[in-house]
Design a binder for these strands. Structure first.
Lengths: 147, 147
DNA sequence: AAATCAATGCTTTCAAAAAAAGCTAAGTAT
DNA sequence: ATACTTAGCTTTTTTTGAAAGCATTGATTT
């Protein structure tokens, strides 16, 4: 399961992506609209700012806004930022690699093989899921649903 | 990431599947061979016994053994037993379903759509990954590796 | 310059879950 | 009987998740 942090981050990102071009959005506004505890959201937004996804502006008329293009922010990136590795086992991750103690031979480990396939499929889908596509898909589903 | 519990469970299952037909195996034997803290393993095996995957025999010559067929034990089942839902979001699970508070319309939620696809792909792969196939694949990889 | 607004940084707290460890009981084969 | 092995229960320790609180810094407006 995603941590609350990651989930909130995604919600906030989609929200900000929809407001792209409208200038900074206050934390309190995002928190209210997406039902996220404000203080928690502050930390989350800050993390994403540090990661180069968002920027902020202080003072009157300040707030957060998307800095990267919506087509360049994908779910794999966001999940890794908040929850670490996406894979189910450390021996099939790239950045968080760790060998299994009990494993006699990683190359021929049947368990590893399964979870490597799962990881690859998952990462593929998540990398493809950009903010742009999510919003696009949402509006196309909405019009489908309303006709 | 899988919990240690789930990971240990899988290791123990593969171990027992390889010993299928050789009678009960002592907990201590599994623990040593797979490098699992024995007391922790006891609880894990007991859970799998309750789930009908294993059976046990007490007293001299006792131990645990696989009760289900190796072709009928898959990774999705084991993971659900120990770690609960496989999906990343509660709104795309079957048994652990929960609605997202902030979600205005689940049917057209772009985020949900992404994670539903991920879930479906993952479950498909995990259901297919039975103990039988894991062992089979392992030995075929080994012979490939040795030639 | 002062007042105001909003993000930033840092610390602490609270709760829950994960990961074990310890001890006693119960069942079974020989 | 007794030696062996799982079963059951309680407690402890560690880690992580999820916040809440408060003082600070920086930008803007008047």
């Amino acid at each position: 399961m995603l941590s609350k942090k990651a989930k909130y981050a995604i919600n906030a990102l989609v929200f900000l992506a929809k407001k792209k071009g409208e200038g900074p959005v206050q934390i309190s506004h995002i928190a209210e609209s997406e039902k996220i505890p404000q203080k928690f959201l502050e930390a989350i937004l800050l993390d994403m700012k540090r990661a180069g996804i968002l920027r902020s502006k202080k003072g009157k008329g300040g707030g957060y806004f998307l800095f990267k293009e919506p087509s360049e922010v994908n779910m794999a990136e966001v999940m890794r930022l908040f929850d670490g590795a996406i894979a189910f086992l450390p021996c099939v991750t790239y950045k968080y690699y760790e060998r299994c103690e009990e494993c006699k031979d990683e190359e021929t480990c049947g368990i590893r093989d399964v979870f490597l396939n799962v990881r690859n499929a998952t990462v593929e889908l998540l990398k493809n899921a950009t903010l742009e596509k999510i919003i696009e898909r949402e509006s196309s589903m909405k019009s489908l649903y309303n006709n």
